[in-house]
């Protein structure tokens, strides 16, 4: 979505009623954020809406970007937010070989997730249950971590359910929404 560098458009303040809606939407989508919502979206603070090209809206608090959204699609968290609250999102892991492709903006392919280095929900190698027990459906928002790395490297929308991925083991898995080093990442809000 942000392969090229982008220039931010107009910045405007979000109405408090809209801000409440965003807040409840965030909680509905990412219930695990509940304990921290007051830190992320304080009730009293004024949220900003920054318009980006291609009908993407970015919600920011001061100079920290929080969530972005394409039209009325689900809200996607910005990677800096994920880095601060890593365990609060549904997560998958890719193997080492796939990192460089992801970081250059490629669509994530299933073998990167099904190989020994990758992790899907209910993975037999995942002893501590870090990647969840629930299979994810197509269209869900997932955070992509990388083998041997501490921080997430991408966030996107699943194209195929995880169950099907395990069965088919090829094809596209997850559309590149926002990855480390892309236009949204390097965007600075002045």
């Amino acid at each position: 979505m942000f392969k090229k560098d982008i220039t931010p458009g107009a910045k405007s303040k979000v109405k408090s009623s809209v801000q409440r809606t965003i807040r409840s939407k965030v909680l509905e989508q990412y219930p695990l954020l509940e304990p921290y919502i007051e830190d992320i979206l304080p009730k009293k603070e004024q949220l900003d809406l920054v318009k980006l090209p291609d009908r993407i809206a970015l919600y920011a608090l001061g100079t920290t970007p929080l969530f972005f959204q394409h039209m009325d699609d689900p809200l996607l968290p910005h990677l800096t937010l994920i880095h601060r609250y890593p365990r609060c999102f549904p997560t998958l892991r890719i193997d080492r070989g796939a990192i460089r492709f992801v970081l250059s903006g490629a669509t994530l392919m299933t073998p990167g997730l099904t190989s020994p280095g990758g992790r899907l929900p209910n993975d037999p190698n995942d002893a501590e249950g870090r990647y969840g027990k629930k299979e994810l459906e197509a269209g869900e928002v997932v955070v992509i971590e990388a083998e041997g790395k501490e921080h997430a490297c991408m966030v996107g929308v699943l194209k195929v359910g995880t169950e099907e991925m395990k069965r088919v083991k090829k094809g596209q898995a997850c559309e590149a929404g926002h990855y480390l080093g892309d236009g949204l990442w390097s965007l600075s809000l002045g």
């Binding site: 970081l103 790395k149 921080h151 480390l180 080093g181 990442w185 390097s186």
Partner: peptide, 12 residues
Amino acid sequence: ICSLPPEYCEFG
């Protein structure tokens, strides 16, 4: 330098 978390520097 590259604004990524340091562990990803090797891919920049």
